[in-house]
Design a protein around this nucleic acid. Structure first.
Lengths: 346, 346
DNA sequence: ATTAGCACTCGGGTACATAGAGTGCTAACA
DNA sequence: TGTTAGCACTCTATGTACCCGAGTGCTAAT
């Protein structure tokens, strides 16, 4: 068990290191007011803390640096009261969301950028996932003799569209009929069930009305059932260049390499529980971010997990600030979702 | 005037330097088959070429490096026959475009990525601009009691949408009426004239039918007339980290800083004439890319400039390859545009 | 339990020597 | 007159030696 004094020293070291990125020496610590001990005393304590695994040295005679275990302890016990975001930050967040307009994707994108700007880390936002999203309307609009655009609208105001050219074989009138049938029978169906319903019930129905059913149907499927990938927004990839730990070209390269594997990152965020989660360095399962820390927060709609907001930065991260901010934003987003979609009449 | 031999030497030096990024010495050159001269002879020629401003030294006793003037001359006179893109590249380009589906924006985005991957430079695509784009349909779809989504489709299959909440004052039925009026009177109107027509003719018409005209109209305007910024797609920002000239963290920082000023970049590309243009280093007017080269190509629709494709890389760029590729792609895009929209019946 | 003192360690900066690549110039050559 | 061999010179890159300062660990005194 750590003594009170050890706790204080650990906390001060981590706070200082987070701030300065330089190893902390005993002399500097002994000058702090809340540590009225001599450098030698503090050295002894630091040696103990190192033995316990909370601190590390970069070389034999350097100052101390927090270990991952140290950060973990700090995050779990020493982080102090999570203050609410500063008024300034609150206004910034609120401004993004209370715009009168609400394109959720747009909000998510702006949030990613703002988060990154406020922290100088890289922000990643996943979602929203569309489990509860229902179909509102399907439309096919001819553009010219043999091209058209298909538009699909959900109850959340999400719009997907796809332009395509109509093969000779497929008759425009058939397409129209099919769309009508789809609208009649699929309105209000959750997006995730769309494919299934379309293949079974709706297909039955259509066969009765459409001449060259097979060709047209295959075609239709390819238009409407393209993957709906969960979207990933990344903000401030280059913001992280301001961190002193990215002082080396190779690190920068490997960081950017990693950021290009969007699906891997998406997976990382998908498996988060609700609430705020902090994974530090090697706690991360993905090789590429084993020397970074990831903080995730999820946002909800009526209890259902909708998506995840995350910040990725060096293990020397401003945990307190980031946790505060993420909590603020995820609450804001959860509230906003509720506000907008509670009167859902899809 | 340069002698035949000087030309050859200049060409070989630039070719080599583009390939290796290392200063070229006389000994290495004298070993080439097409330069059957001794190192001393070549040294003399190089000294002359330097005096003329085509070559530079990095320090007194280093090999030679092309100057910007050298690159300029190379691009204008020595670049050799612009071969057509390799069959491999052709297939790649064609695959992006002949997808059966054509979301122009999607194609543009993919093109940006592919271009960057093929060259290891950063690609920038501007456009397409919507001068000739005409309105196809406007639709407002209620989502819940007081929210709705507005969808605007153009004859090119471009879809803009915006969700918004309806203020108490504005009656849904009024909105609907207004949309009907707009559809009737604005169909086929070029997007760029939309705002003007709406404010004059259409507003007149509406006044006759709508009760609380002013509020509703103001509101409508804010929904539909949000800026239509010309879109900018950037591919392979981090690809450029593979270039040896980006071996220094500061350079990387300033490069990424520059890439964030999207409007500045957009301006850069807007002012290009048709055809292929190469600007080398200080020929660029924008400070931030004065040690890079930019190659632009524009694509058209029935003679009208629609947008610009560009590649940004070190002055030591594979000019021949890039010019080839850009020409290929811009032709492909021009063709594709023509194919899709020639039967335009908006 | 705390602290002062001291020997020790290591990184980073500076100075210096050396090797190698390349040049410029001169003189010899065809 | 154009070409080439030879040589002195220059500059970079690399390696080595050295010192300074910050910091530690340990011992002994308080």
């Amino acid at each position: 068990m750590l003594t009170e004094r050890q706790l204080t020293i650990l906390q001060v070291i981590i706070d200082d290191f987070i701030d300065s990125a330089h190893p902390i020496g005993s002399r500097a610590l002994s000058k702090k007011e809340n540590l009225p001990y001599s450098a030698a005393t503090i050295r002894n304590e630091m040696a103990d803390l190192e033995e316990l695994g909370f601190l590390e040295k970069t070389h034999t005679s350097s100052g101390r640096v927090p270990s991952e275990k140290g950060y973990r302890y700090y995050v779990d016990h020493l982080i102090g009261p999570i203050i609410s975001p500063s008024p300034n930050e609150v206004t910034i967040i609120k401004n993004i969301i209370d715009d009168g307009f609400f394109e959720f994707e747009q909000i998510v994108q702006m949030s990613a950028e703002v988060l990154s700007k406020l922290t100088s880390y890289t922000s990643i936002i996943l979602g929203p996932e569309m489990f509860e999203t229902k179909l509102k309307q399907i439309q096919i609009l001819p553009l010219s003799a043999h091209t058209a655009v298909a538009i699909l609208v959900t109850n959340t105001g999400h719009v997907e569209h796809r332009s395509f050219s109509i093969p000779e074989k497929v008759r425009a009138s058939d397409l129209e009929k099919m769309v009508n049938i789809m609208n009649d029978s699929l309105k209000g169906v959750p997006i995730v069930q769309l494919q299934e319903k379309l293949a079974t019930e709706v297909a039955q129905l259509m066969k009765m009305y459409i001449d060259d059913f097979d060709t047209s149907f295959d075609y239709l499927k390819s238009v409407f059932l393209s993957e709906h990938p969960v979207k990933l927004y990344i903000g401030g990839k280059s913001n992280i260049l301001m961190q002193p730990e990215f002082n080396d070209v190779d690190k920068i390269r490997s960081f950017f390499n990693m950021m290009e594997k969007e699906d891997e990152i998406a997976n990382l965020l998908k498996n988060t529980k609700s609430g705020i989660e902090v994974t530090i360095g090697n706690e991360n399962e993905v090789e590429a971010i084993k020397d970074l820390s990831l903080i995730t927060a999820s946002y909800h709609m009526e209890g259902d997990h909708m998506g995840t907001i995350a910040l990725l930065g060096p293990t020397r991260m401003e945990y307190r600030k980031v946790i505060t901010l993420l909590r603020g934003l995820s609450n804001e987003m959860t509230d906003a979702l509720y506000m907008w979609y509670k009167n859902d009449d899809a």
